[in-house]
Design a protein around this nucleic acid. Structure first.
Lengths: 194, 194
DNA sequence: TCGGCCATGTTGACAGTGTACACATTGATG
DNA sequence: CATCAATGTGTACACTGTCAACATGGCCGA
């Protein structure tokens, strides 16, 4: 390793996203800056614009990376919970979401920035689709009420997101966090089945 | 009106917060900058530092202003709903919170920034206290279970906040918003009484 | 009424930010 | 091997927060 610096990096785009991810982890949003990311890659700031139309697009790529990390944990948990009731698998997804927010609070703040959510990605399966698939299993066979599905999806997503944010920002104690997660998710489960 | 410009503004602090509020409404977070706020008041940027230790403190003051606006609507609704069941009054609070987020989306983003929440304000009654007071009425007389109170409070706050954020960022259609608010709050109510 | 103090304003500077333009380098391809 | 497109560099501009030094003038005591 430690080659002499080459003029052409070779895989700068990936390196930029990597550096952005690390910077986001350690410094938080304010630390994620075009110039710092470029410097971390040993490259000038202008080089970034060969790979991203703007700094925001780079940040969005970092956010996408974070979403993929989160999705990996979700799928792992779902595999482990295969066969269990839909409501239980939905809880796994929620716990995964919250766990990521608390384990990587600064990275999570990128995930939940509206700016970083690509407007259209028809193929890219996201967390919302995941939730929808499970919520659909809660519907009575052959009688899918779109209105009810939407309400259930939104309750699941809103409560998980809100809980994640509030715990991250205002509840430092790990025990209190655990108890609140369990307590709230119990009640959300009741609300979902109502 | 339209006095000639005086060297001493007279009530600059208030004027700065006013200008910040307007700027936050129209431009959003990125538009809320020390220099722009100062310019809007016809004053140099450095003058701000006679009234706030840093630009972040000014932003925090604007956020506090926004919270007061929100609180006014909450109290008005609660007055109108006086005597009704606790669960109904809790819903009024949630609806007020969400309505503000959707009516003033950019201002709301200041409200929900952790940076802008003052760490200690013993006297200042905030929304959390409001929620707690109502949630306490849900408890059986003489048997207050702190654990249960905390779970209920957190469910109420997390679902309202999450719903507000998701609707603001991802659901532009007003009809869809209304239906989701009603649907989710129904389910939250069920979860609160579980 | 006058002097002076001090709260409150200004100016100018510095470091750091995103981003565009002109230029330099190099890997790959005809 | 020559050339071209891809990719990186250097420099510049406008903008940001913040500070130090200086200017102004409203108020309070003699």
């Amino acid at each position: 390793m430690a080659d002499r610096p080459r003029y052409h990096h070779g895989a700068l785009r990936e390196a930029l996203v990597d550096a952005g991810e690390q910077l986001a982890r350690s410094e938080g949003l304010d630390g994620v800056t075009v110039r710092r990311i470029a410097a971390a890659c040993g490259v000038s700031a202008a080089a970034v614009y060969r790979h991203f139309p703007s700094g925001d697009h780079l940040i969005a790529a970092v956010a996408q990376r974070a979403r993929e990390i989160m999705a990996r944990d979700m799928f792992a948990r779902l595999d482990a919970a295969a066969g269990r009731a839909p409501i239980d698998r939905l809880r796994e997804v929620g716990e995964s979401y919250i766990a990521f927010a608390l384990a990587e609070p600064r990275l999570f703040s990128l995930v939940s920035m509206p700016m970083t959510t690509p407007p259209d990605r028809p193929d890219d399966p996201n967390a919302a689709d995941l939730v929808r698939d499970i919520v659909l299993e809660l519907e009575p066979l052959g009688a899918v009420d779109e209105q009810r599905v939407a309400s259930r999806m939104m309750l699941a997503q809103a409560s998980a997101h809100g809980l994640a944010v509030i715990l991250r920002d205002f509840v430092p104690d790990p025990r209190a966090r655990e108890q609140l997660i369990a307590g709230v998710l119990d009640r959300v489960g009741a609300g979902l089945e109502a």
